[in-house]
Amino acid sequence: MKTCLVVDDSSVVRKIARRILEGLEFEVTEAEDGSKALEVCQRQLPDAVLLDWNMPVMDGFEFMGHMRRLPGGDQPKVVFCTTENNVAHIAQALSGGANEYIMKPFDKDIIADKFAEVGLIPVGQAMV
């Protein structure tokens, strides 16, 4: 089973994302900010990270930079999931090592499409 770390300071968003990702057969762990997420990654890197941008303590972009520098940290697929929906933020995320980018609000179809896009799930599954 593939693993996905959901990083968001909103427990509601984490809960919705968890439900969707479990439906796509991911084993889900949660973190409420970038710093807690980094602790999780230092123990074990997930296959995927669904990553909010604006969070207290450490934001998503800073977290991604730290995670990418961990041994094997280039492996996890990072999918941003944020209300930051402008071109400047998207370009920054991609050049900083993000694989995909979701602009909130999101739903199951968008998550499935984006995860299929980066090869985390088969394309067929995204169409269900």
Binding site: N85, I90, L94, E100, Y101, M103, I110, D113, K114
Partner: peptide, 15 residues
Amino acid sequence: SQFEVQRGLPIQMLM
């Protein structure tokens, strides 16, 4: 809409 461009379109192509 923002919703429509997130269905099936890779982010690099959107950009």
